[in-house]
């Protein structure tokens, strides 16, 4: 463990500073993705024909390697955090649109009819009935998006020190210090697990009506969210 926390000075950040940077680069895109995904999912549910093409395009985008995105963006946004964050926001969007659309769609028709009968308008119904009931599915999507975002930030190291904790990986190779790479992997994993735990706690807080006893039903977010659609 010798030198585990001994961060080379050329990274220009302390260990804690790298963590802060990493979280910012990972979580801001998820938030941006969520903001864009909410209206997009609403549109997809409004106009059913929109859903398959949106799913197709998003699945394609998801398959494009992050590094390729970063490289192409350098021309427009330079070697900056933004270059890393834009693709990550896009990936989050790709995960969140189907999660929200499917979650909202899974709200039983009777519930919707009851809400309409009580005089809810479409927007009010979406915000006050559909979204809360779809909350578990949306949070499941957020968990996938967050985990993938936190992992992918590291790749930013390849475009010139924009990888936050990932920069430790470059340093590890440069100075042949595997412990720095181990530090990067472990710290990133711990960050991912903590963020995941926070999202689970959020879901519990948002959905007090769901039974808590027994095994956590959504402990494992639905993987098929990612590539769903194209094959069905």
């Amino acid at each position: 463990m010798n030198g585990f926390f001994d961060i080379p000075s050329d990274l220009q950040h302390s260990w804690a500073g790298l963590i802060g940077l990493h979280l910012r680069e990972a979580l801001l895109p998820v938030a941006a993705g969520l903001l864009l995904a909410l209206p997009l999912a609403l549109l997809c549910n409004r106009f059913r024909w929109l859903y398959p093409p949106v799913l197709g395009v998003t699945t394609m985008l998801y398959a494009v390697p992050s590094l390729a995105f970063f490289v192409v963006l350098i021309d427009y946004t330079g070697q900056t955090e933004l270059t890393v964050m834009i693709p990550l926001a896009l990936y989050s969007l790709v995960v969140l649109v189907p999660a929200i659309a499917d979650g909202v769609r899974s709200v039983p028709d009777e519930t919707l009819s009851a809400a309409t009968a009580m005089g809810f308008g479409p927007v009010r119904r979406y915000l006050q009935v559909q979204l809360p009931i779809a909350a578990p599915a949306i949070i499941a999507g957020l968990r996938v998006a967050t985990a993938s975002s936190i992992s992918l930030v590291s790749v930013g190291a390849l475009i010139g020190n924009q990888g936050a904790l990932g920069n430790l990986l470059a340093a590890a190779q440069k100075y042949d210090r595997p412990e720095l790479a181990a530090n990067a992997v472990v710290t990133t994993a711990v960050l991912a697990i903590l963020c995941d735990a926070a999202l689970v706690a959020l879901r519990r807080a948002l959905t007090p009506w769901m039974p808590r006893s027994g095994r956590e039903r959504t402990a494992a977010p639905r993987e098929e969210l990612l590539t769903k659609g194209a094959a069905r």
Binding site: A147, I150, S151, S154, L165, L169, A172, A181, A184, T188
Partner: peptide, 11 residues
């Protein structure tokens, strides 16, 4: 899921 792929590769 929490393990970063790129980090694992380098390590």
């Amino acid at each position: 899921r929490a393990l970063p792929s790129f980090g694992l590769l380098v390590l």
